[in-house]
Amino acid sequence: MGCVSRIEPTINISQDLVFFGDTRIHPAVFIKKLKKYIETLPSSMNIKNIISSTMKGDADIWYQLIEDKYDTFDEFEQLFISKYWGEYHQQKVRINLINGKYNEKFGSSRERYLMKKIYNIKHLEPKFTENEMVKMLARHFEEDIHKVIVTQRISTIDGLIDYIRSIDDYQTGWKKNENRQDNRIPNGNGQERRQNEYRNNQERSNDNRQENRNQNNRGNNTYSNRFNKFNRKPENPSQNTQIPQSTSYNNTIKTQAIQPQNTTTQEVNTVQTVAQIHSADDTNF
């Protein structure tokens, strides 16, 4: 009669039960999932083999160092939390919760930023109340957003997420259509101020271009006037030039000009005498 050998059940580990020691999955989330999975397995199974199969990358290197330091899952859980979610890591999250600020230059939306913060905060020990979390997270965003959260008395995480999502949706739509006439974000978001600054810059740019055109026109007119001044055509000499006339012609004209009609012989002689006097004066001159 032959002996029956014991066959170890095959271990199938899903991807959400793989830990690399980085931010792909939160340490507190991983350890909870691993614990639930082990509870569904027969007690006869080797726990260390199961845990070892879930450690990858840097986490696997760490596991090789502590494999001989535990015998039960609870002991492993304590070692794991101390390494990846101990007081040092939790204190960093608390400090960021108080002093953190959202910056759109990092390329993340407000909603995504908020969700990542909530994801870390909810695993802190001791835990914050929901209202405390909302108050501290509201300070991470612009002043006008913070004021709306306070004045509208948003006190739940779901309410905060919904409002932040509405801000992101409006801003995304505004960026796609910058020519919209109404650029006010609901409840006083600072986008209206930035849009007004953009319009003012456009107006100043247009004014500068118009001023440059005016200066060019004035410069062209000045050059044209100078050109016309130095290239002016001479006047018609026939209009201003007097034709020289002989003395005898002048005497005749003068005689005719001062000789009245129907004059007597004596009057004519007198006129001729006066003309001769004038002729003599012209010759002396």
Rank of each mutant, 00 (worst) to 15 (best):
T247A: 11
I253M: 12
N262V: 03
T264S: 15
Q245H: 05
V274M: 13
P260T: 00
S279G: 15
Q272P: 00
T241G: 02
T273N: 11
T247V: 10
K254Y: 08
T252Y: 15
T255N: 05
S246R: 01
S246V: 02
T273I: 04
Q276K: 15
Q242W: 04
Q261N: 12
N240G: 03
T265Y: 04
Y249Q: 10
E267D: 07
N269Q: 13
T263R: 08
V268W: 04
I258W: 00
S279E: 15
T263D: 00
T264Y: 01
E267A: 08
T264K: 00
T241L: 09
N269D: 14
A257N: 12
S279N: 13
T247P: 03
I258T: 08
N262H: 09
S246D: 14
I277G: 02
N250D: 05
K254I: 07
T247H: 13
I258A: 01
N250L: 12
P260L: 11
T255E: 10
Q266E: 13
P244Y: 05
Q242G: 01
Q259R: 12
Q256P: 02
V268A: 10
T273L: 06
T255Y: 06
Q245P: 00
T252P: 00
T270D: 08
S246Y: 03
T264F: 00
H278P: 01
Q256G: 03
Q261G: 04
N240D: 07
H278L: 15
I253A: 11
K254G: 04
N251F: 00
T252W: 14
I258E: 05
A257H: 07
Q256W: 02
Q245T: 15
Q256C: 12
I277F: 03
P260M: 09
P244Q: 09
T247L: 15
Q259L: 14
P244V: 06
T264C: 03
T247I: 14
Q266H: 02
A257T: 04
P244L: 09
K254R: 09
Q256F: 07
T273D: 06
A257W: 01
T270M: 05
Q242P: 06
N250G: 05
T270I: 01
A275L: 05
N251S: 14
Y249M: 05
T247R: 14
T252V: 07
T273G: 00
A275T: 15
E267W: 00
N269R: 09
V271A: 04
A275W: 02
S279R: 11
A275R: 14
P244N: 04
Q266S: 13
Q266N: 14
Q242E: 12
E267V: 05
Q259W: 00
N262F: 08
Y249A: 11
T255F: 13
I243E: 10
Y249V: 02
Q261Y: 08
Q276N: 14
N250T: 05
T265N: 13
S279M: 13
T255V: 01
K254E: 05
T264P: 01
N269I: 07
S279H: 07
N269A: 08
Q242T: 08
N251M: 15
V268C: 08
Q245D: 01
